[in-house]
Design a binder for these strands. Structure first.
Length: 230
DNA sequence: ACATTAAATTCGA
DNA sequence: TCGAATTTAATGT
């Protein structure tokens, strides 16, 4: 299968690939592949074998669980430029969550065998994965604390703070094409409540509302807000 | 749910 | 190819 230029450049832009040898990089290019999904499409079913590591090339993806009643809980939003799913690949377990495209998206796949081979052969790759897992650990600690608050604006603050988290996602610009409706779907709120929450945050000087996107002004402030009582 | 406004697209010169 | 007009999408209430 031919690899597009964009696909190669996406991989070479990813932080984990910078210290790979040519040989290692070549193998990644050989083994990786990409697929397109339209908005709302299911990328991975919950319970599927986790046979690959995923990267979002373009678009926006969310990770969530669906309970019997059809109620869904969103764990995390994944913006373009980030990689995820390493936990399940390493544990060789079925994916404990579903992955859904929030908007039209391009997703990269790296097979487990390649992923494990990189872990075995590249010190810097292993280091990347460790850092990534560690950041996720911190993320979940924050998420639990945040959910206990049960407050709309705090939830939105948390989702945004993580979406722009430079540790987890190599964020480039302080704004991201992100409509209020998408933020709502990410944080599990109606668009209406998302709108109110965003205005609260804007009033607090943490971000600016722009047409079709938000501009983050104070990432640390958002994180603080996500854990503060009202 | 509806009214408003920004952005994207179409159309005519 | 430019810009006005129309249509679509996002936002505010």
């Amino acid at each position: 299968m031919p690899l597009s230029i964009e696909f190669q450049s996406f991989i070479s832009r990813s932080a984990w690939s910078t210290n790979l040898t040519d040989e290692q990089l070549t193998r990644v290019y050989m083994d990786a592949y990409q697929r397109s999904y339209s908005a709302g499409a299911l990328i991975c079913h919950r319970g599927d074998p986790a046979d690959q590591w995923l990267g979002v090339i373009e678009g926006l993806v969310k990770v969530d669980t669906v309970s019997k009643g059809g109620r869904s809980t969103t764990f995390a939003g994944v913006p373009a430029g980030s990689w995820f799913g390493e936990g399940s690949v390493l544990k060789d377990e079925p994916r404990p969550y579903a992955v859904i495209a929030l908007r039209d998206s391009e997703v990269a796949f790296i097979p487990r065998s390649t992923f494990e081979w990189l872990i075995d052969n590249s010190h810097s790759f292993s280091r990347f994965v460790i850092d990534q897992l560690n950041a996720r650990c911190a993320y979940y600690v924050g998420l639990v604390a945040n959910l206990r608050l049960n407050k709309a604006s705090a939830r939105v603050a948390f989702c945004l703070a993580e979406l722009f988290n430079p540790q987890l996602f190599n964020a480039t610009d302080p704004t991201r094409g992100l409509s209020q409706e998408e933020i709502g779907r990410l944080s599990g709120l109606s668009r209406q409540n998302t709108n109110r929450a965003l205005h609260d945050l804007a009033d607090a000087g943490l971000l600016m509302i722009e047409y079709g996107s938000v501009r983050i002004l104070d990432l640390q402030g958002l994180q603080d807000f996500a854990h503060s009582e009202d």
